[in-house]
Design a protein around this nucleic acid. Sequence first.
DNA 1: CAGTGAGCGAGCTTCCGCTTGACTT
Length: 775
Amino acid sequence: MQENLVIVESPAKAKTIEKFLGKDFLVTSSMGHIRDLEKKDAGIDLENNYLPKYVVSPDKKKIVSELKKLAKDAKLVWIASDEDREGEAIAWHLQEVLKLKPEKTKRIVFHEITKEAILKAVDNPRPIDINLVNAQQARRVLDRLVGFEVSPVLWKKVKPSLSAGRVQSVAVRLIVEREREIIHFTATSAFRLTAVFLVPDENGNVVELKAELNKRFNTKAEARAFLEKCQSAEFSIADIQKKPSKRTPAAPFTTSTLQQEASRKLGFSVSQTMSVAQRLYESGKITYMRTDSVNLSDLAITTAKSKILDMHGEKYHKFRQYTTKSKGAQEAHEAIRPTYLDQEEVSGTAQEKRLYELIWKRTIASQMADAELERTTISIKVSNAPEVFQATGEIIKFDGFLRVYLESTDNEDEGSESKTLLPPVKVDQLLRAEQIDATERFSQKPARYTEASLVKKLEEQGIGRPSTYAPTITTIQNRGYVVKEDRPGVERQYATLSLKNGKLSEKEKTEITGAEKSKLFPTDIGMVVNDFLVKYFEKIMDYSFTANVEVDFDEIADGKRIWTEVIDAFYKPFHHHVEDALENSERTNGERYLGDDPATGLPVSVKIGRYGPLAQLGETTEEGDKPRFASLRSGQILETITLEEALELFKLPRDLGEYEDKKVRVNIGRFGPYVQHDGKFVSLEKNVDDPYSVELPRAIELIEAKREKDRKALIKTFDEEPELRILEGRWGPYISYKKKNYKIAKGTDAAALSLEDCMKIIEAGPAPKKRGRKK
DNA sequence: CAGTGAGCGAGCTTCCGCTTGACTT
């Protein structure tokens, strides 16, 4: 039995702290929150001044009963949850649930996990800050009210199982609005002039000097006129400018910046980054990965310094203290950094190594000297025109932190300016133009969000917390509001003019534009839900709603306002909007009439149907006419689909003829184009077969290939039970019986199973059906 | 794995933030 029980939030932290405190202290963890509002009636008593009804979360029952036992045995209980709003609430819930007596309970906080910090915390206990707790209760209650009152409106007016919330709905709005900017964007083009001049270098060799004109021309005629002038022009150096500049390292990682850099540099998804970081944290290699702080502990700064001096010398070190500036930051933790900065690399999976290396470099670089650069701009005069060509080059005079790490940017610039070394030239020196090109360039449409750039945007707006960025992005995809996809680009023609050896030539070229990789696209349901919410719940959908309520929460935390009054001021008008939306809104399905089919004269429209967006040809009439339906393809949306594109959808299914006296039909389904024959489905081959033109012989070929594959997958059948088959599937052998599949335990020799064995497995029940997404 | 597009009206869905495992699909 221990005299002292310390409760922290995470088990990894508990393990570390226990080492510092010695054997008189038992350190354990609550695993985050232990209680939450009950689900019934939103867990809030509206008749009783918003009294929250808390219940111990089902997955915390075991932990709570263990904590109860430990607390009873201990003389003193030290609650050491984080010092922010949520941490204070955890402390309060622990006190309530464990029925801790004030005289044997101490609340302590520390910001970094070092022996000194913890011992100091133990010497300075304080009471639980009930104002801070109340600020959390207000936050919790508000989120529950919004989520549990607005979502049911969507079930009634749009589709069951949908959801709305303070954070997720605004995240979707960002994506929807960006998509519309892109839809309404019209590209303009201008001609960019680039020249290659030839100059001798120090050794007398001829080298290239690439330069760009300081003006773009709007039309091809203007560009041509300029090039014609160049035919008889003389080129000379007008000016050489050298400007020193410097670069500063980025701050150490927070959750958000780690997710962004891991996405750009390593190609990790936001949730992938978090799970890899979690493993590094649990094995003691990095500090806590859910943080909004850029602060480094004194110890970390000292270690970084000695490591930098060791590796690169004193010139490369610069002491830097970073301050967090992001909205709504709570700073309960340190920045994300290696626990031991002297370790440049760690053991583990490839992903763990790469993420660790990134964190290590970023942390070290953050304590290194600025890089010093020199930017040179050479201006080249055109004798018979006012415009000048400019060549820019940048040289690094002192690399500083760049030796270790350079932060990436989202918009990989178009490589318009060269960063290369420039050849030596003198003012008034004459140059020979090897080639001058005029290339039509188009303005760029706004960029779609990636997971990581959405996190960045949310953080800038103060929406969501480090622990919720990844789950929020998962939720909006799970709800079907947003999809993360690649999209092929389209071809675009552009004009080029070229002047070489005194001759002017013109060419049309083609480029691929608009190709997207792993970008977030709104779905039709996402757009319809968004428009509905913006119309009826303008306040909640406002980008600054969270920032505004945070001000209220801060006032509660400061003891200036009563939390239930803040909630009441919000809820009264809000609830009125809920009732208004229920009574006065039409059911919405995004229906849009596109025009009439020229062939039949029937109307064509699109809307969201039971199974997703569809196009409809014709209508149900009293004469018994029935409309035809066709699902929209991936990439098509209600808002932009044209009549022609919709009519194209009705060209399927196509009947190709018969094979073995059974119809062969081709169509496009949920899993792509397929051939249907004799109750079986065969996928068309991607990028090879086109469902609109594929013919019978090829279809038969595919059917036969599928049969062959199925024969190979067949491990065993039983004569007594023809409906039972043992098959080889993607995840190993399984049993198929009466259209249901059953898992075979790993390590079993499937071919040796008897009919009796199989029936036993079947009786044990089928593989559990996907039981929603409970995350 | 699967080609549906309707309305018998059961019973269910849903939020945000704090934390770690369970276990496939």
